[in-house]
Amino acid sequence: MNPSLNNVILQAEQVIAGKPQQIRLALTCLLARGHLLIEDLPGVGKTTLAHVLARTLGLQFQRIQFTSDLLPADILGVSVYQRAGSDATTGKFEFHPGPIFAQMILADEVNRATPKAQSALLEAMEEQQVTIEGTTRVLPAPFFVIATQNPAYQVGTFPLPESQLDRFMMRIRMGYPDAQAERGLLSGTDRREIVARLEPQMESAELLALQQRVKAVFVSSALLDYLQAILRHTREAAHYAHGLSPRAGLALLSASRAWALIDGRDAVLPEDVQTVLPGVVSHRLQAVGERSRLDSDALARELIEAVAIP
């Protein structure tokens, strides 16, 4: 396993105690060039996770707090007229890049903003570039968005529609910390101070190289058989509203590769697929009939158990 990657995980685990799985999944998402949606209540460490990852990976970090009066220009940036006489560049419009021009974006409470602002972010995520006033500007690489979302039953939110959800590679939950981790949290020093002291463990170039290595992780035909069996099951079984899309299949495959890489292997095992599967499919599958009462994790578990490994 890559030593700097290991250090990233170790450091992150010090700050966010008791959540090794979430840290690894977030990293998986990053390495597989996907974006991450974290859905949970406020105050369970979503922001801290983003902070820690940005610091340890040495990425430029920007946080956008989504509110109901957020405008697309607040995300993308705006051209401002420079008054004559104040500067050398007189009488011209100058572009002031918005917070989106960073390597890691934390879009906090993305469901609080209006759909217009949401889609400005989501389009940037999809295309890795933004077009403002006719000029196309490329976003930095690596580019990684962690969006957080409060569960939709809170008042005054615009839940992301399913088509937008599909743009996130994974959706995970943080969950409450266990008793031991919580005791550490309560008795230890302030998290913010620890985060501020964290040292970057790798350069952007190294991260980009790791992203390339993910693509090289070997996938055997036996594993592809398994993957296809999963996809086929979601399409043929009667209790899903609709089956997984080919894009979901690709996301499942690259997430499995990234997980295998983090696990220090050069080939994907069925266990890798099963590990990342709940995160990848939970926001893409909808159950109908009596199963619609199941929560998304239970649904993913049911899917894993329904498909035999060939």
Binding site: E271, Q274, V307, A308
Partner: peptide, 9 residues
């Protein structure tokens, strides 16, 4: 072994 169970698990 359950049908969906991988070798490692």
């Amino acid at each position: 072994r359950a049908a969906h169970e991988g070798a490692q698990d």
